[in-house]
Design a binder for these strands. Structure first.
Length: 209
DNA sequence: ATGGTCAAAGCGCATT
DNA sequence: AATGCGCTTTGACCAT
């Protein structure tokens, strides 16, 4: 058993902390180098019931091609004037997945957070998306999940840290009180258990009470 | 207008 | 080589 009990208690407050700082050093932005952007407008007329297809832009950015597809009825806030959707100035509109597409992706993600090439292709066909889009969606979705989990862990650690800190305070106070009531030589009477709670012999307890 | 937030996508690197 | 991941940029949308 330790005979330097005070150090034992003090040790409780050491080595605790939330090492969550990023320490990240941003990489050089290479995306803006030699970027040749060509935007092509593509008009689709494939929506039923007169729904208007919008925002179909094939954007050639470096080596990547994308086609975006969305339907107005899925986005009530969407302003649906022709000028909004035609990209006359050559700028693409950002892809937004439809609610149906999103929910199907979500459902699929619940079943498996990663897809093999066959599953990916099947899902892409089903959703009328490119496999690359499905792939990216899953990547981002995994990242979001991880971020959420990190947040949860952070909160748990915070709580745990607070509990330990409270316990440490309590023990320090207890020790102080014990010292205050010290009458004569005490060492053999007071012992600290492994969990750092004080145990006393019956004689000392009588003295304190 | 502008700043914040969210999601899609690009890029570089590590792993398999 | 293919894939995943971390970090980042970009564009749309919203609140102020």
């Amino acid at each position: 058993m330790e005979d330097n009990n005070e150090e034992c208690i003090a040790g409780l407050c050491l080595g605790l902390g939330l090492g969550l700082g990023s320490g990240h050093v941003p990489k050089k932005n290479k995306q803006k180098e030699n970027k040749a952007v060509v935007c092509l407008d593509l008009a689709f007329e494939l929506c039923p019931k007169g729904e208007k297809a919008v925002n179909n832009v094939n954007h050639h950015h470096d080596k990547v091609e994308r086609i975006s597809l969305e339907r107005i009825h899925d986005y009530p806030n969407e302003k649906s004037t022709d000028s909004d959707n035609s990209n006359n100035n050559g700028c693409r509109k950002k892809l937004r997945l439809s609610k149906d597409q999103s929910s199907m992706l979500e459902n699929s993600f619940k079943q498996h957070s990663t897809l093999n090439p066959v599953q990916k292709q099947a899902l892409a066909d089903q959703l009328n998306l490119k496999t690359r889009q499905v792939e990216v969606w899953f990547q981002n979705r995994r990242a979001r999940t991880k971020l959420k989990q990190t947040e949860v862990n952070r909160e748990l650690l915070k709580k745990h840290c607070q509990n330990l800190s409270d316990e440490n305070k309590r023990l320090k106070k207890e020790l102080q009180e014990l010292r205050a009531v010290k009458v004569g030589p005490s060492p053999p009477c007071i012992q600290l258990s492994k969990t750092a709670t004080l145990t006393m012999c019956s004689l000392c307890q009588k003295l304190v009470n």
